[in-house]
Design a binder for these strands. Structure first.
Lengths: 124, 124
DNA sequence: ACCAGGTTCCATGCGATGCAAGATACCTGG
DNA sequence: CCAGGTATCTTGCATCGCATGGAACCTGGT
């Protein structure tokens, strides 16, 4: 799935990420602070949610603007300093909120996709 | 969950619908043609994907523009005529494509939300 | 000292999408 | 003729993912 890919599958996946990426990033920060490239790699490893810097950094800016995360600079053993992002109380609340909403949403989509075989055996 | 609701839950749900609504609408047309208000009611009944006319009609226009559906006018027993939307071959292909992509996406989100207990038992 | 390469951060502009609000038309019933 | 319900569609806005490009820091080779 190259970056410049514009197949139907890529388009569908791109639209799917909308709104979900934000909460998956928050989820990644649940146990410990993370920095940008680290988040990017974790999303990449997940496969379905792989994205680019041009998506993650504006997202992180919004999270900071909305007080869902706080950031602290920290030196790196090899390379430029890293900005670590950590959940605030609001951020944790938003993540909990999403965790409550997600199953209902997920199941609703599953229901729409798995059409209940319409009673009448319409086979040959 | 009123339309003008702007709680965190409503905001999260609104962003979730992005990109998914299109394919749920296509899924609803899989077995038989449907008309606008009928689709609207089906989404309403699902709970998590409830939306408004201002969302559905522009969406249906895009589907028609992209040749994913065809439409036919049909008289109603009581009320104005209805425009019925039916899947084209392209529409059915797009739905199949999404059906293939969805499980991977869904499981990826589930994995992010259900943090694998990070070794150290940090419970109470 | 200098420069190439890797790492890390960020800003800008575009396209696509959901939504609120409003407009139009048809049919029935008083 | 008018009120109300049904059904369709348009417009303008806000948000989000993404491609592109740029800037800063560190290491290592020459």
């Amino acid at each position: 799935m190259e970056p410049g890919d514009s197949t139907k599958q890529a388009r569908a996946a791109a639209q799917l990420r909308k709104g979900v990426l934000e909460y998956c990033v928050l989820a990644l920060m649940r146990d410990r602070p993370r920095y940008g490239v680290e988040l990017l790699q974790a999303l990449e490893d997940s496969g379905a949610l792989a994205t680019s810097q041009g998506t993650v950094y504006p997202l992180l800016s919004r999270l900071r603007r909305d007080d869902l995360v706080t950031t602290t600079w920290q030196e790196s053993a090899s390379g430029p300093p890293r900005r670590y992002y950590a959940l605030t109380d609001s951020g944790r609340a938003a993540l909990d909120e999403f965790t409550r909403v997600w199953p209902g949403f997920r199941d609703a989509v599953d229901t729409f996709l798995s059409t209940p075989p319409p009673s009448t055996g319409d086979h040959a």
